[in-house]
Structures are given as C-alpha cells and as structure tokens.
C-alpha cells in the first residue's frame, strides 16, 4: 500500500476535525469505499456535507489501493442540500394547515 504524500496530521475533514491518519487507519482496516469512510469516521457528514473533504478522501483511497479516482464509487448524498431551520419546516406546516391543507 502506498501512503499518500500528505502528512498524517493534516486535517482531511474540517467540519468534523478528522485527520489523514484517522482516514488511513480505516482504509488499512479494510474500509475502502467513500461510503464506508464516511459512515465509520463522520468524514463528510459535517456542515458542508463533504463538499470540501470528498476529493481528499478519494485521493487517500486511491493512493492506498491503487484504484483510479474516477473508478471509485461516490458516497451517498443525503438531502436537504442546504441546512434549514426546524422552525421553517414547522411554519410551512402551520401555513398549509391554515390554507386547509390539513394536519395529521
């Protein structure tokens, strides 16, 4: 396995504060898809939903396994794509109920 050139202390996921060393440890243990790295480390589950760290994770997996980045399956992307306040969803419900949309 070829380690990537980045130093182990470098932060891969800024939102969740996860280092290259942590990601590499998972890859060594056999968690070799972006989905697995995400689920087992939270890397990519932060505020930006992986926009910043997604490519860095792909590079780590590629460096360790020799797979080309384009051949690695992408992690599942879960909506909502922009963080929305709970109060706004509650308000939407209250408004549709007032219009006769019904609440159940």
């Amino acid at each position: 396995m070829e380690p990537s050139e980045k130093s182990p202390e470098i932060i891969i996921c800024r939102c969740e504060d996860i280092t290259a060393a942590e990601v590499r440890k998972l890859i060594t243990k056999g968690y070799r898809t972006p989905d697995e790295v995400k689920r087992f480390s939270r890397c990519g589950m932060g505020q930006c939903q992986g926009r910043t760290c997604r490519n860095l994770v792909l590079q780590e997996i590629s460096a360790a396994t020799g797979q080309e980045v384009k051949d690695i399956p992408m992690a599942t992307f879960r909506p909502p794509t922009k963080p929305v306040k709970l109060g706004l969803f509650a308000k939407a419900r209250a408004e549709s109920a007032a219009e006769g949309g019904g609440d159940r």
Binding site: P79, G87, F89, D103
Partner: peptide, 24 residues
C-alpha cells in the same frame, strides 16, 4: 420534515433555531 418539526418545536420551541443537515 414538517411532521417532526411541528411536533418537536411545539414541545421544545428552542429547537426552532437549529438547522437540519440531513434526513434519511
């Protein structure tokens, strides 16, 4: 999203300000 948000913010209004990042 609407169901859970309306129930939870009635029970705990302070949560109105907290943002949802993912649902599944």
């Amino acid at each position: 999203l609407e169901d859970v948000a309306s129930k939870v913010t009635t029970m705990m209004p302070a949560l109105k300000e907290v943002r949802v990042v993912r649902q599944w």
